[in-house]
Design a protein around this nucleic acid. Sequence first.
DNA 1: ACCTGAACACCGTTCAAGT
DNA 2: ACCTGAACACCGTTCAAGT
Lengths: 235, 235
Amino acid sequence: MPVCRAPAAHGPEMGQDGQVGTRTGRPPKISRPDIIAAARRIIDTDGVDRLTMRRLAHDLGSTPMAVYHHVRDKEELLLLVLDDIASGMLRPELPADPRERVIVTAQAMHDTLARVPWVVQVITADDLFSPTALWYNETVIDAAMACGLSIEDAVYAYRSIWYYTAGELIVRAAAARRRAEDDRPTFRERVFADLDAEELPRLSSLAGRWEEISARDTYTAGLRALVDGLLPARR
Amino acid sequence: MPVCRAPAAHGPEMGQDGQVGTRTGRPPKISRPDIIAAARRIIDTDGVDRLTMRRLAHDLGSTPMAVYHHVRDKEELLLLVLDDIASGMLRPELPADPRERVIVTAQAMHDTLARVPWVVQVITADDLFSPTALWYNETVIDAAMACGLSIEDAVYAYRSIWYYTAGELIVRAAAARRRAEDDRPTFRERVFADLDAEELPRLSSLAGRWEEISARDTYTAGLRALVDGLLPARR
DNA sequence: ACCTGAACACCGTTCAAGT
DNA sequence: ACCTGAACACCGTTCAAGT
């Protein structure tokens, strides 16, 4: 059993420097930062699904087992990548009005994740997330309390916002992936093409305009609606 | 769509005498209904991730390729299962008040999917869904229009509700899966256990109560807040 | 018409070495 | 200390037959 494991939750900067004078044995060919960078490259260009230990090793000019010497398993690798991404997190200027603070923070969280949509897939599926990102939770909960909510209700408000945001990101990411993967009409489009006008009059009245209507980004409008409903009315 | 035959008894081979009319060739050992039932059994007991063509064939006392004779590929199999599930969809009594109609329909959609949480994972990830389920879209859009929204805004209102609902179901399903899989404290719990009280005062003040607070189901409350924000104020 | 068995091109991960 | 190669136990799917 190799015992080289560095704690995962802290920054990548420590590297091998901890053991300067006493270094012995074979010099390393690949490092954790190398591995993380290569993993991000694969995910960015080909999607998370294409990140495999073999592909990663190949891109590094190495072997799968060399990678396993630096990371415990694929889960830890994903966690390191997540931490790396969290360092690029957007921390917006916070307005004085607490209600706007909720909106602005949620929007920043959304925009940060929209740049790396696969992250939402991973964190909801696998319980992986970066402690750094808790800043969003804290800020939304604090602002909601400043609007008059109890701490419990502020947590529930945050949670509702997270459900809405995660749902939006996951659905949009899935749609984008579909568009990238193949251009033949998807199953969804085929179904919409021949709807029963008797049973589904509203939907079939939209038949031709579905794509156009779906394309519009309404995240922000929906967020404002949700926050309006969650927070007590303004005085 | 191919026609589904009646379920055939699985077990000892039926004699040639079982054949009727013009049917020729080898009598089938497995049928689509058999396959669907077996697939549902696997998913219900072990989760979607454990549904593999090999496992399915094994459970049917057959071989993977026998399954491929009845189903094009794994995607079609999932679609058949989805269709099967859609037949158990809840169609609630619809109240006269259109605003309540939105709530009741969304709640029914949520409750239907909450019984089979893996479905949300599959439909958002793979663009698979059952036409039967469009009843929810239609009903919500129609009710939102009855509240005074244009058809476009009604579609966007539906979409916001779907984001919120899908997010809730996915997050809860992931949490449940985690709990089932292992009982050592998850990464998330370990992080919450030692928060920096300086940086994250609200979150760390909740340290001990996190689990208790998370456990409460606030789907309906959040839904009402969202719908309040989305629909024009009552006259 | 329906099913079988072997094979292909993949996975994540472990074992036992090699330098 | 770090890396290699072979192997294990899996995938979905295809090919070529067998009855």
